[in-house]
Structure formats: structure tokens, C-alpha cells
Amino acid sequence: MSGATQSTAVSTGRITRTLIYLVLLLFALFYLLPFFVMVVNSLKPLDEITGGNMMSLPQTWTIQPWLQAWSSAQIGVEPTGLRPYFLNSLLMVVPAVAISTGLGAINGYVLTKWRFRGDNIIFGLLLFSCFIPFQIVLIPMATILGKLGIAGSIPGLVLVHVVYGVGFTTLYYRNYYAAFPTELVRAAMIDGAGFFRIFWRILLPVSGPITVVSVIWQFTNVWNDFLFGASFGGQSQPMTVALNNLVSSSTGVKEYNVHFAGAILAALPTLLVYIVAGRYFVRGLMAGSVKG
């Protein structure tokens, strides 16, 4: 490699470069291996797993474990498969993400472009609420959901996820809108646009990148949540809880291939979102929240 084309500050010799690639590839292996093993073994019959090598490809390929995990595996006491729980998760995620993102956007707009005395305190309180250990709210939440009559229901879970997600979405939109020139808002005011019109016509049309971040973040968090699902899921348990029930059920033979298929099914939506939009997520996240 010629020094002239090397634009990073550091130039390195050939041996170090080989070492660097080696280390990077080893880590890639480390990250890929568990998932690889899951996929491969979810496509094997059970006896091939217990008797064979987890690293080897299936000798007999089968999608039976997937079908079983999806529609007939024993979850708790019912042989329903994961399908109804997948649906629960979906019904919970969509409104929770939409509501918390919408609230976050309008909050961020107010907190940056319509500042008032004490707005920073409100933002500080919202921000801190993102980081609390949820154990601190479990007991009263159980009581309140019961009183509201939405304990163990999807609306209850939606409420919980909106409440504890709105801090993050507000944070994202606030940081994004903070970089948006206030002069534009002033120009629109002089042009005669009011509070909502400015939001709708001026800010929202340029909020694409941060909306991607907010939606992915909320989607991943809500979909992957276990604690709230396990505590307040009741009759409407989400996918993660069902998966845990499937995997840790102690009755009968452990059907590892079915467990793996189930785990991948549970991971699929977030993985898909990540594959489709992950690039924008990381970019937006870096620009928005964790810049020093």
C-alpha cells in the first residue's frame, strides 16, 4: 500500500494489517457463531442435535421445527405455538410505537422552538425517566392497571410502553430539532403560520431521519421487552414471554430444534427492521443522542 493514498493519520505495515484483519474476522466469527448455530440446528431433526455436532449442517433438512414452533408447540399449558403471541406483540408494538413517536416529536418541537421558563427541568425529568430501573414502578403499575381495568390486556401494555418510551423519543426529537434553525420558525410565524401549521408544514417534512431512529428504537425496545410483558401480559402475553415459556418448560423432552426456530421467529421482526433500516438508525443515533 503506497503511503500517498493513505489518508488516515496512521499508516501501518503489512504484518500489522494482516493481524488487524485477523482480529476483526475473529470477532465477526464470535458475533455470528451463536446465531449460525441456532439457524442450522433449527433445520435439523431432534435426534441429529442430541447425537451430532452442533456446528455441522443438517444431514436431513427439515422445516418441521419451524412449523411446530409457529403453530403447535406447547406454550404454558396450551399447544398453540407462538402464532397468537406473535400477533399479540404486533398488536402491542404498532400503537405503542406510533403514539410514543408522535408524542416525542411534538414534545421535542415544543422543548426547542417554544421554550418557556422551566422547560429544561421538564426535559431533565423526562430524560431521567428513560433510565430508571423499571422494578421501581412494577408494584404501583400492577395496581393502577388493575384499577383502570386494562391489566393483562394489550391496551395496558401499550400504555406502559408509551409512558416509558416517550422520554427517549422526546430526547431524539429534541436533539434533532435543536439543530434546526429557529429562524425558519420565526420566518413561518411572520408568514402567519401558527403552532401546528409550523410543525406540520415546516418541521415534519424534514424529520424523516430522526423518525426512522425513533421508530426503530421504540420498535426494538417494545418488541424485545420481557419484564413488562411477563408482569402485565396476563392473557395477552407478548412473543418474548411465550418464547421463554417454550424454552424453559420442564415437561417432556427438550425439543431444541423447536426452541431455536421459536427464538429466530421472535428475533425476526427486529432483525428485519435492522437489516432494512439499520444503517439510518446508527447514523441518526450517533448524530442525535450520544454525541458528546
Binding site: Y31, V37, T220, T240, L243, A267, L271, V273
Partner: peptide, 18 residues
């Protein structure tokens, strides 16, 4: 990066077995 898209339950299941 992809492991961060997974839920801890999935991660736990995978590693428990691994």
C-alpha cells in the same frame, strides 16, 4: 451490531444452549 437488535431472551436462549 446485529446482536443489539435481538431481545435478551433470544440471546439468552442461544447462549444457554451454546
Amino acid at each position: 451490531l446485529y446482536p443489539m437488535a435481538l431481545s435478551f431472551i433470544v440471546t439468552g436462549t442461544a447462549w444457554k444452549w451454546f
